[in-house]
């Protein structure tokens, strides 16, 4: 297995009038060929900004202030716009949550796929259309050469997301960042697409970062999990190990709040409190105010430390003493 992406100490901050929002504050991980990494966290935990940082598409006033992103061995942080653009779509691409909003309603599917191919070198319409049709059939859209003349509104939500995936795959990139791509779809379609994505990744060797707040979706897909909280990685490790024995109380809370882990009729468990404002983070562990294990030690920000196959940022890692048996 070769490593395609290595992110180290990534910090993406937004300099606003109200202060500096540290949306991503020291995130590190690596990704191997054909691997699916699940990036999990609540809204506002910095998952999406991490994704945009990888593509060099953070909107002002946001900016990568520190860290390193090495894609296929080449550094992306500090690269100029032209270099970044040349790599977007070809080496790394991204798909989004709402397939209705991502495709341009005024252009045919074929035109949009052609534009993406023309962005990386000259290509004849015929060759571009052939490649487009090939990818559409790969994501399960049959009679795809006729479908190239169709407009997005002629497709259902699930089909549109398939088109978006096909577009992201046009140049066989090394990495695809998938930002909650199945959240807007209904459950049966969601399961279909998840299965197809798994096959596609295995076939093409494309690695994927699957961003989601839904631990259930990610756990069926990803081989490793990265749990983010308030812009930081709080836990990292193989999916099975993290799900079976979460070391961080936040991960534990996420697992406990899954509807499937509650007995029927029993009230759903939830993590008390809300995500802290990134403008006013507590000085120590950002999760401390919501944490049952918090004590005096938590006034100091915990560093990541390894426990077995997992890495966790907590002063009191391990199974909770007060844990209710599932």
């Amino acid at each position: 297995m070769t490593e395609v992406l290595r992110v180290e100490g990534l910090k993406t901050h937004f300099h606003t009038r109200a202060g500096v929002v540290k949306a991503v504050d020291g995130v590190s991980f690596s990704l191997e060929e054909g691997e699916i990494l699940g990036l999990v966290g609540e809204s506002g935990s910095g998952k999406t900004v991490t994704g945009f940082s990888l593509l060099g598409l953070v909107d002002p006033p946001g900016r990568i202030v520190e860290g390193s992103i090495r894609l296929k061995g080449q550094e992306l942080v500090g690269a100029d716009d032209r270099t970044l653009r040349a790599r977007r779509g070809r080496d790394i691409s991204m798909i989004f949550q709402d397939p209705i909003a991502t495709l341009n309603p005024m252009l045919t599917i074929g035109q949009q796929m052609r534009l993406v191919q023309e962005a990386h070198g000259r290509i004849t319409h015929r060759a571009a259309d052939a490649r487009s049709a090939e990818l559409l059939s790969r994501v399960g859209i049959s009679s795809s050469s006729a479908r190239l003349r169709a407009y997005p509104h002629e497709f259902s939500g699930g089909m549109r997301q398939r088109v978006a995936i096909a577009i992201a795959l046009l140049h066989s990139p090394a990495v695809i960042v998938a930002d909650e791509p199945t959240t807007a779809l209904d459950v049966s379609i969601q399961a279909q697409i998840l299965a197809e994505m798994k096959t596609l990744v295995a076939e093409t060797g494309t690695a994927m970062i699957w961003i989601s707040h839904d631990l259930a979706v990610v756990s069926s897909l990803a081989s490793r999990l990265l749990v983010m909280y308030a812009g930081r990685v709080v836990e990292r490790g193989p999916t099975a190990a993290v799900l079976r024995q979460p070391k961080h109380p936040y991960t534990e809370g996420l697992i406990a709040s899954l509807p499937s882990s509650a007995s029927p009729g029993a009230p759903l468990r939830q993590i008390p409190g809300t995500t802290p404002s990134l403008l006013a983070l507590p000085p120590g562990c950002p999760f401390a105010p919501r944490c049952a294990r918090a004590d005096a030690a938590c006034a100091i920000r915990p560093d990541l430390s390894e426990i077995g196959t997992q890495t966790v940022a907590c002063h009191h890692p391990g199974p909770s003493h007060t844990r209710v048996p599932a």
């Binding site: 040349a86 989004f96 709402d98 991502t102 993406v116």
Partner: peptide
């Protein structure tokens, strides 16, 4: 997201303005 998606696919700003935005 249409524009973000186009950017993520590596389209140049000029192409985005001409082919996506203008329409």
């Amino acid at each position: 997201d249409t524009i973000k998606f186009a950017r993520a696919a590596g389209l140049s700003e000029a192409t985005i303005l001409r082919r996506h935005l203008l329409k």
